[in-house]
Design a protein around this nucleic acid. Structure first.
Lengths: 265, 265
DNA sequence: CGTATGGTTGACCCCGCTCAATTGGTGTGG
DNA sequence: CCACACCAATTGAGCGGGGTCAACCATACG
């Protein structure tokens, strides 16, 4: 039984509730920067935002209720456990970590969220965020007021079904970690999952630099940090990958996929 | 690392896809049996079905798209992994177990569903059920065509938000098992969860008879069946509970809650 | 009865956690 | 530029919770 003794890393004492107030936010439609298009095409709401040509008024309304948040610096929180839920957010840039802390102050990492992925959906249930969300590096977000989004979903079938699909996908994603698997399988599944998600966003599937510490990886995989070190060392000896600090190079994707397949299917 | 060698229990060779075809179904409104009211009051859709007095036409439509399924006998499947998703179902009576089988044929139990709870929501994601659902005893269901329900949710804000809440709740439920906890904590959390769910449906919070086998409990908790036996024996020695085969009597709810609190919070 | 199925018990062992020491990279002040 | 501190990461030694394997027991059913 491993339990981390580390408190959540907190570089900034300031507790700015970024999804609650309106500091550093700008409405979507008044900044016509060029990378908005490239971002939106990989965002989880792309099909709702872009592919709804048949309902241009709805599209305009969706873009109206989007607000840009950030940039947040590493260690700043997006939201905290127990805060009233009122918005979800799509990661626009950077990486967000979600976690809970139990009664003893032990941190338990729930997930890492890359650009295009949506955080906060688990807060719908009882109107409060059930976990914390913290920036691991410089993070920018698209904030969506959930009440307004639900209202708009009444008029836009595509948006409603997209929300249903996102929620349903998170159920299955949460179940992945629940299985009991070896340290090797967990690590391989973690790396393959990252690889696929980076690749889907146009980055290299083989080479990437992690934004999270070893302790975060270990905590997420329910392993001791020491085990993560040893597994990575063995993977390197077996020429499955090359790793230098946080730079990873997946040398043998097929064998990693093979290892991960028990979990990722 | 424990992996079950047991194939999914299958007492009936027949593979009747119960949520797909219309055998043994009757529309809700043509059977005015008295227990419909008592069931519906504890069903997950009760707030949508009953409390929507302000929208009687919507209520009537919701009842129109409900169809009763069953009774299914123990071992009969409600749906199977990979089948096209087209409906969710509320358990009306009995217990449903959901599970997946990996490449090696090992079963992995995902959850148990009591009367009033909803199965199939994780199939929305990619239009196929990602797991199997099997009856553990005699099961009756309320089947809801999901496309029709989504359509109705466009007109009924209460139904839409109820669906959002159900989906969001399942995300958090799935995350519970993911933590690494001792065998004692897992078992206590399992029993307390059942206790609460029975109590919420008007049954005793202390005494109940399980419908699932030890192997199912073990598999669900990611423990070996032998470990389940040993933990229960120790719990009994410590006078936390009394157990005779599948009859449980929770003698010391406070201490069990205490043990479970790390997981259930 | 005999047989099948599910549950229990005991002996043993291994994966991964714990504890502790060491390394190395990064930042800061002299 | 070096010295020192600090923290993340690594490495080693030891051990314990829980899995494995096997035998045994109990209830259900033909």
């Amino acid at each position: 039984m491993y339990s981390s003794n580390h408190r959540p890393s907190e570089r900034r004492p300031m507790n700015v509730v970024q999804l609650q107030d309106r500091h550093e936010m700008r409405p979507e439609h008044d900044d016509g920067d060029g990378d908005a298009v490239t971002f939106c095409s990989t965002c989880a709401f792309s099909s709702a935002c872009l592919a709804e040509g048949y309902d241009k008024s709805g599209l305009a309304e969706l873009h109206c209720l989007v607000a840009h948040v950030g940039p947040l610096q590493a260690g700043e929180h997006v939201f905290r456990e127990g805060e009233p839920f009122n918005a979800i957010a799509a990661v626009r840039g950077g990486t967000v970590k979600t976690y809970i802390t139990d009664r003893d102050g032990n941190e338990q990492v729930l997930g890492f969220f890359l650009p295009g992925e949506v955080i906060g959906l688990n807060g719908i249930h009882d109107g409060r965020y059930p976990c914390n969300a913290v920036a691991l590096d410089t993070v920018t977000l698209c904030r969506f007021s959930f009440p307004m989004m639900a209202l708009l979903a009444q008029k836009m079938p595509g948006l409603q079904s997209q929300l249903f699909r996102l929620l349903s996908a998170d159920i299955n994603k949460a179940a992945l970690l629940a299985g009991d698997h070896t340290a090797d399988e967990r690590m391989a599944a973690f790396l393959i999952s990252l690889s696929r998600r980076y690749a889907a966003r146009g980055f290299s599937a083989r080479r990437f630099t992690l934004t999270m510490a070893r302790t975060d990886i270990a905590n997420y995989l329910r392993l001791a940090p020491e085990t993560v070190s040893r597994v990575l060392k063995r993977f390197q000896a077996d020429e499955l990958l090359a790793v230098d600090r946080r730079d990873f190079n997946l040398l043998d994707l097929p064998r990693l996929e093979q290892l991960a397949s028990v979990i990722l299917r």
